[in-house]
Amino acid sequence: MKLSAPIYHLKRKAKRLSREDGIPLHDALDRIAATEGFSAWSLLAAKAAAMTPAGKLFPHFQPGDLVLVGARPGQGKTLMSLELAVEAMRAGHHAAFFSLEYTEKDVVDRFRAIGADPAQFRELFEVDCSDAISADYVVKQMAVAPRGTVVVIDFLQLLDQRRENPDLTVQVRALKSFARDKGLIVVFISQIDRSYDPSTKPCPDLSDVRLPNPLDLNLFDKTCFLNKDEVQFRAAS
Rank of each mutant, 00 (worst) to 15 (best):
A46D: 12
A50F: 04
A135D: 08
K201V: 14
N218C: 02
V144Y: 08
S190F: 08
L3C: 11
R210W: 11
V127R: 09
R16P: 00
L100G: 01
K182W: 02
F61M: 12
Q120A: 13
S42K: 11
R122I: 09
G74E: 10
L217N: 01
D216A: 07
L226H: 00
R31H: 04
S199F: 10
P202E: 12
D154P: 03
W41S: 06
A174V: 05
I153K: 04
L44N: 02
G64A: 09
A28L: 11
A132K: 15
P118K: 05
F225I: 01
G183H: 08
P6Q: 08
L158F: 12
M80Q: 13
F188S: 00
M142Q: 15
H26N: 10
R194A: 14
V86F: 02
Q62C: 10
T103P: 03
E126G: 06
F155W: 09
S134D: 10
Q62D: 10
L156G: 02
R162N: 12
V231R: 01
R16G: 09
F188L: 09
P214D: 04
K47F: 12
V150D: 01
R31A: 11
L44Y: 06
A40I: 07
V138R: 04
G76I: 05
A96M: 03
Q157C: 07
Q191Y: 06
G55M: 01
R112K: 15
A135F: 03
L168W: 00
V187K: 01
S199A: 14
L156Q: 05
L168Y: 01
K2H: 12
V139H: 09
I185V: 15
G55Q: 04
R16E: 15
F233A: 13
L158D: 10
C224Y: 10
D128C: 14
R16K: 14
S39M: 10
R194L: 10
L29S: 05
A235D: 05
A132G: 08
D229W: 05
D167T: 13
T149W: 03
A50R: 14
I185K: 06
R210F: 13
P73H: 12
P198N: 08
E20S: 11
V108P: 02
V170G: 00
V107K: 00
K56C: 11
D106T: 03
D109P: 02
P214G: 06
D216I: 09
F125V: 02
L175P: 02
S81P: 01
F220W: 00
D109L: 12
R90K: 15
L226N: 00
R31Y: 08
D65K: 06
T103C: 05
L17S: 04
A119V: 10
I153V: 15
R112W: 14
P6G: 06
I7F: 05
P73L: 13
S237L: 12
L158Q: 14
I32M: 07
F220S: 00
Y8G: 04
T103W: 07
S130K: 13
A179N: 03
G148P: 06
R12G: 11
H94D: 13
